[in-house]
């Protein structure tokens, strides 16, 4: 994953005086699933629309494959887009929607490709039903099929699981993972963080139009991992004791006084007992576990305080 395919450089979009997205910096590498997290109105859709070429940035630049498009729109052709509601004609069938787009793309063997996509998204049995008779989940799946029709390198999905039932959410999740396995880079926004945490390999947290943090899945897991936070007089005295007495393997020294212990089979009571027995003063000790939701809230609150 070393190939940077999209780079947002100080991307800003203002509507009159209000900034919907402000100075966004984000790098997206080939094969990643990037989750865009943010509250309603945080600027997720606007950011995705700028990346997909639907909305022009007020300032800043987009680089594709390390090149600035500079008026060349051809890079946008390599993206499949499903932003907000799927763009579909309701009075025709899903097949006909795909057929129309296939004509626009100039696909040679469009019928075979349409059949393949309908099968992929699980709509091959509904080809004669008009889109107005589709459920929300079916529309979203057809929207994904539409986005995939042009064989894109990048798939941009804005809230693809909005309004879906648990079964629908699971199906979309599996489809996204399947597409990613086939080599597609995916940008996905959602405010259902639990779902996003099951698929994304990187997260960009947006707050009031600003990307306040870009964090990898591993880093996030590490930050949200269950741990015991110990504050002692001197960490360098406490560590050898814990290593020797409790066979401590997984820990992190934060500073001269603070240590995080990640070995889940060690209890607070054991640590306190051992440290006290060896004359190490314990200032505080507490168990810490954070969900993605809590982390997101904490991060956006911190950003909010910074703004204030």
């Amino acid at each position: 994953m070393t190939d940077c395919i999209i780079e947002c450089c100080g991307l800003t979009k203002r509507y009159k005086s209000k900034a919907a997205v402000l100075n966004a910096e984000l790098k997206i590498y080939r094969g990643e699933i990037v989750g865009i997290i943010g509250k309603n109105g945080a600027g997720k859709s606007t950011l995705l629309k700028m990346i997909s070429g639907l909305v022009y940035p007020t300032s800043g630049e987009l680089h594709f494959f390390n090149r600035a498009p500079a008026g060349d729109q051809s890079f946008f052709e390599r993206m499949g887009v499903l932003i907000e509601n799927p763009g579909l004609y309701l009075n025709v069938t899903g097949y006909e929607n795909l057929k129309l787009l296939a004509i626009a793309y100039g696909l040679k063997d469009s019928n075979a490709r349409i059949e393949e996509l309908l099968q992929l998204v699980g709509l091959d049995g509904s080809r004669s039903i008009k889109v107005k008779g589709y459920s929300m989940g079916m529309k979203q799946r057809l929207g994904i099929a539409v986005a995939l029709l042009g064989n894109p390198d990048v798939l941009i999905l804005d809230e693809p699981i909005n309004g879906l039932d648990p079964q629908g959410i699971m199906e979309i999740r599996q489809l996204i993972l399947e597409l990613n396995k086939k080599g597609l880079t995916i940008l996905i926004s959602s405010h259902i963080l639990e779902e996003l945490s099951k698929i994304a390999s990187k997260y960009a947290i947006l707050h009031q139009g600003e990307i306040v943090e870009v964090i990898s899945r591993e880093e996030l897991q590490h930050k949200c991992e269950e741990r015991i936070e110990i504050s002692v007089e001197e960490a360098k005295t406490a560590i050898p004791v814990l290593e020797r007495e409790l066979n401590l393997m997984r820990y992190k020294v934060i500073d001269s006084r603070n240590v995080y212990v990640y070995d889940t089979d060690i209890t607070i009571r054991q640590i306190t007992k051992v440290l006290v027995e060896h004359g190490v003063m314990v200032d505080s000790i507490a168990k810490h576990k954070q969900s993605l939701e809590q982390y997101f809230l904490e991060r956006t609150e911190r950003a909010g305080e910074h703004h204030a």
Binding site: M79, V81, N85, P86, L88, L101, A104, Y105, A147, L149
Partner: peptide, 9 residues
């Protein structure tokens, strides 16, 4: 919203 499907071309 159908135009959004092909306008990036």
């Amino acid at each position: 919203g159908f135009h959004k499907n092909y306008i990036p071309m």
